[in-house]
Design a protein around this nucleic acid. Structure first.
Lengths: 331, 331
DNA sequence: TTGTATGCGTTATCAG
DNA sequence: CTGATAACGCATACAA
């Protein structure tokens, strides 16, 4: 059986109102009653019922996080950091793994709304843009890494993918690369698109011509890409530098090149993106562009809390700088 | 503003009771009223308030998961799988990152209890054994990988660490290893202890003498172990096979051995434990003992649901077999 | 400083 | 088939 505020009140010979006040530090009671109430609460191991509390106050002290895939290090890293920060602010976090699935995402959105979360943090997702409209009640939300459909309702936080990619490409060229290649996944997220754009920008900057066939290579996840890779490198002997749009791709390529005795970085230099742990394990260790997940997480929680308290306004975008981590896949 | 069942009732010209029945498919209403109610619900975008619902019914259709570190692949893998299974059963999941911190763990336990979760899944944790007692209400819980203090209140699910370690050690010996070494982290979890025990068992089986100094090496996480490693291998030239109690340790050693031109597997063969993604990235690729996270996850959700429905009894233990994944760090 | 009474949104009982 | 109403546990306006 569960104790309620009523039980405490009865045991103390006070009213439920008083108990409630004590619990919530609202003042308006004597030291003695406070002590008495606290003691009974402690003795009985009483705990508030947050459902009742939320029903009454409309405040749940809970933030929902939507994350596409908790197994992906970049995401789990951010989630873990956000969770930690929120915990310190006495918010609890409901982490929802959407599996990159639109239906699941909507489903969770409804659940979170019905649970009365105070705010939402949306990390990337299945579609490039996100809108949280048509709901009954406005719930403040932050978008990380996925552009909101309607900027005016939210705050958008993202790494500077464009500049990160430009830096990476320029880095390669400064290391002597004459024939740069960008490696992309099959379906481009909004951030991958920016990275591609950054790559192109720098080619233009250095008057290097760009063609899809020779400067672009598309790989698919989970599938065996060896045929594609083999065909590509048979036809493009000149490639001497690769910007892989993410570390997983970069690693796949390094493994492939090793197999074919193409030396990294001597024959081909490679830069990745994301700085996942595996980038330090592959040999040669991977030079990569790292996203500042600390800063992203901090902005996300600061802003969501501010929004909840009406201290921030929506319609803004925060761009977080990236950094090149130089390792041994470049000269 | 938020619509309630009352608003729907009024708009439909029926009572709240009827609306509730329709929502919950309880029957006792005509086709026409059903249609009418459903239409209004849809038009208004009404959503139930789960706090009110849970307050009333004591059922939240929510499971809490306590996980030490969501950044650790073994954990995030299990969490992700559990979440998926629960989602299909229309349970939502609250994932709590305890940061291997006892205080945080307790804190979350209280929060989850006050949110009226229907059940708990506890993955490993800060202490070797876990007990969820002294609470007002019994909440069914499952322990994964961490022995419960009191078996009778829970169901314990774990890989067969002992046998996994025995297999690994025997595997090494069968590959010709004469001087096996086990590498351990500083503080041993209950599962690491079992793995050590398994290692010792097999040495005995093959009449290989065991001494802490020559057959054991302790490394610490996050610190630079190169001094320790160097000293050890200077004094122990004979070592020709290593069982690392987990893949991270194994990888660290491989990297070290490479640096000192000790060849893997030619000079020293290595087997890890856990089959983390990085084990396929290191070269040579790591032979390792993989835990069956699919099966662990499935058992966990089946059992917690059964417990909730009173269809399983506590006090049992489920041991899940492991499997050796042979790769190139062994001959 | 304390207590009474009301309502948050739901479900369930009971009467019709 | 339908409706009125009480109760879940809590916080608060108001009265004392």
């Amino acid at each position: 059986m569960n104790y309620s505020i009523k039980d405490i009140a009865k045991k103390c010979g006070v009213s439920t109102a008083t108990v409630s006040r004590v619990i919530n530090n609202k003042g308006k009671y004597s030291k003695e009653t406070e002590a008495k109430v606290l003691k009974v609460i402690n003795d009985l191991g009483y705990k508030v019922n947050s459902n009742a509390q939320t029903l009454r106050t409309k405040i749940s002290k809970t933030i929902g996080i939507l994350v596409p895939d908790i197994n992906n290090h970049f995401f789990s890293d951010i989630v873990q950091k956000i969770e930690k920060l929120l915990f310190d602010l006495e918010y609890s976090t409901i982490i929802c793994n959407t599996d990159r699935n639109q239906v699941k995402e909507n489903n969770y959105l409804n659940i979170l709304e019905s649970k009365n979360v105070d705010g939402l943090i949306i990390i990337s997702g299945s579609s490039n843009s996100f809108s949280f409209e048509g709901k009954q009640k406005y719930i403040p939300y932050i978008c990380i890494d996925r552009e909101p459909f309607e900027f005016s309702n939210t705050i958008f936080i993202s790494s500077n993918h464009l500049k990160g990619a430009e830096d990476a490409t320029r880095f390669l060229i400064n290391k002597g690369v004459k024939h740069p290649l960008i490696v992309l996944p099959k379906k481009l997220s909004i951030s991958s698109e920016s990275r591609l754009e950054g790559f192109k920008n720098v080619l233009k900057e250095y008057s290097i011509s760009f063609s899809e066939e020779t400067n672009t290579l598309v790989l698919s996840y989970n599938n065996d890409n060896s045929d594609i890779l083999q065909k590509f490198f048979n036809n493009n002997h000149k490639v001497d530098g690769i910007f892989a749009v993410n570390d997983n791709l970069a690693i796949e390529i390094i493994k492939f090149l090793k197999l074919f005795n193409i030396r990294v970085p001597d024959d081909i230099q490679i830069v990745g993106f994301d700085n996942i742990p595996a980038s330090k394990i592959i040999s040669p260790e991977l030079t990569t562009v790292s996203q500042n997940t600390n800063q992203i997480s901090e902005y996300a929680v600061n802003k969501i809390i501010d929004l909840i308290n009406g201290k921030a306004k929506t319609g803004t975008t925060i761009i977080v700088p990236t950094k090149i981590i130089e390792r041994n896949s470049t000269k």
